[in-house]
Design a binder for these strands. Structure first.
Lengths: 206, 206
DNA sequence: CGGGCTATTGATTCCAGTCAATACTCGTGG
DNA sequence: CCACGAGTATTGACTGGAATCAATAGCCCG
């Protein structure tokens, strides 16, 4: 499937390509208004779960409640990564990451991680990656040329997975990190939040 | 404050500029590992809320629980809008939206919506918007030239709010929407999810 | 006063978008 | 069955907007 945003002029921006095991509609919880739409790219089965029932279930089964938070949080992390990508990567790097990400998801679902079919058009891929369909097509052709992949219409075969993964060439030097982040308030380790008993915590910047 | 992602080369990508009333750390719930960092841009006060206590509170006060979901969902919608912007808008439109968004937030906090100070550098703005600091500086200068705003260093005065708001010029024609989304599964109206008693719902694409 | 950020502005380059022509796929109906 | 047409994909030529490189000026703080 694809989820998308439609702007005031009717242009659509693809937000994600949900697959087996993914969740839809988390964005509709706040204000009971969905901010995005979903479209099937091929026949598919969905499970409908009324939000009220989910939360009710969460009240009796704590692990269920935590799963809810976890799923929403995961979606958020995914979106963050998306923003990072759109903000900083070149066209080649975006397409490469897209392929790797698809590969990962297919293998996680038990399919081949090397050989698979795209269910979406070049246009949709382009919209998802913030590129035009021509650029997507050209980039795939270029990868095919170099031997990184073999591409025939929507059939993709990944030849050099590592090369794709390391093709994270930024548009040369966006945002140098000279003085990497002074004043950390949170770091990437997994220590729990300090217990505060709900008191104030005051932090002062340098 | 600013929240940011740091990639494998130490480059930082700004994700948001949290202000009074905003929440931090929602991304850390899934897998108890924060995926982003936060840095203070000026002296500020924070309230630390252990996640466990929040959920415990949610169990006794239902409205509290719903507030949790609501906040997370709102964050998600915000990120989605961000993706849409990065994927489809020109540099001018991005800067214009940024200013309008800041204005809205300041006025919501009780400050002037027309006259305010930026707490972040051009570099940080650029990183946030997916632009270089030079482009941000140039665009602000251009807006100043045309009379949309007055800018002196970090002091911004908005002159033509409406013009800024309507400056949603896309980079001419990204992603035409000819056949606007066939096969809608969810639409933007706020009808509740159909009650399904947890049964299967099957949808078939055209 | 001087040094380090920060910001502005100019000149130039280049990546990706635009415009355009052609080919491939597939479903439909004469 | 094949022709037709609509949607999709590839490829080329050209353009343009934003990045890069670079130089100067303003600001803050010791």
């Amino acid at each position: 499937m694809k989820t998308l945003l439609i702007d005031e002029f009717g242009n659509e921006q693809v937000l994600s390509f949900p697959m087996k095991g993914d969740i839809l509609g988390v964005d509709g919880i706040h204000s009971k208004q969905y901010s995005s739409e979903a479209v099937a790219l091929s026949d598919c089965d969905l499970i409908l779960l009324p939000f009220k029932k989910l939360t009710a279930l969460g009240r009796t089964h704590i692990e269920m409640e935590h799963a809810m938070y976890s799923v929403m949080s995961r979606e958020l992390v995914r979106e963050q990564a998306m923003v990072g990508m759109l903000g900083a990567l070149s066209a080649e790097a975006r397409v490469a990451r897209f392929l790797v990400s698809l590969s990962d998801r297919f293998s996680q679902m038990g399919y081949s991680s090397k050989l698979f079919n795209l269910r979406m058009t070049r246009h949709e891929i382009g919209s998802y990656l913030g590129l035009t369909l021509e650029t997507v097509s050209r980039t795939l052709s270029a990868f095919n040329e170099i031997g990184l992949i073999t591409v025939d219409q929507r059939t993709i075969c990944i030849r050099e997975m590592d090369a794709l993964k390391t093709l994270r060439r930024l548009p040369p030097s966006r945002s140098r990190a000279k003085h990497l982040a002074a004043n950390k308030l949170k770091s990437a380790d997994n220590k729990p939040l300090p217990a505060t008993d709900g008191n104030w915590g005051q932090y002062v910047s340098a």
